[in-house]
Amino acid sequence: MNLPSATLLAQSVLSGVFIGALYGLLGLGLSLCWGMLRQINLAHFALAFLGAYLTYQLSTVGGLDPLATLLVVVPAFFAFGVLMQWLFARFAITPFNSLLVTFGITVIIESAIQAVWTADPRMLDSAYGHVKFKVGALYVPLPELLTLVLASLLAIAAWAALRYTDLGKAMRAAAEDAPTAAAFGVNERRLGFLLSGASAAFAGIAGLCLALSFTLAPSQIYSWVGVVFAAVMIGGLGNPLGPLVAGIVIGVSESLTMALTAPAWAPLVSFSLLIVVLLVRAEKI
């Protein structure tokens, strides 16, 4: 067996960082909803793909720059997130039932995507997709770099907001002990709307990244669920930086597994890491 070249290894690490950033971005809203609203929101993945398809549509038919589509997608998704939270609050959905309800929403969104865009694969041919930078022997594609930058900025911004702003502190308080927080004047209901809206908006932004880097098909919604759940759980629920860090660890591990052994082993990585984390530090999740 030939040993892999240094370039191959380095490029694999870089690919792993990029894909890991996308895991982190997809996991950001999921983690916040799960950790702070106690909702296991499977529809987050469907929303991300809906965002990707809207980016595709607005860019290819509407002629908008893909980044400019965020001006439409983010507010629309925020509103959708608020609506979802209102429904969840109105019907007092429990955490377990949220899994079932959001799975149903996922199926509905998948069917809607298929009805509008058909099951035929779609690919966004944007100017960004053709740009890449060469650093030594390594290639850095612009769409992946954008994903890394967006994922990092959003994760850091969310972390800083939760840690340093009054609003963030109120959210954390409400998540930790809602009755006591309410006694101090924290409006849990409104904060829930804000958090759910922000999480859905994050899904929309992840959709942009999906559209820039991947061929889209409605059925692919489900192919991200396992690994992103692993990133969220390893990263810690409600921790904005956790999914990004865990996603990058998983991404790099997967990439190196594919570079050094059979690529078929790669899917085992995320779940093996999850099992290890559950065994070693289950109390932190």
Binding site: L8, S12, W224, P263
Partner: peptide, 21 residues
């Protein structure tokens, strides 16, 4: 000779290995 599971998402490392070969 490389094989991957149906449903694989990340083809970066596979592309790298083909290029390397």
């Amino acid at each position: 000779f490389l094989e991957w599971e149906f449903g694989n998402r990340d083809y970066g490392a596979i592309a790298n290995r083909v290029k390397d070969a």
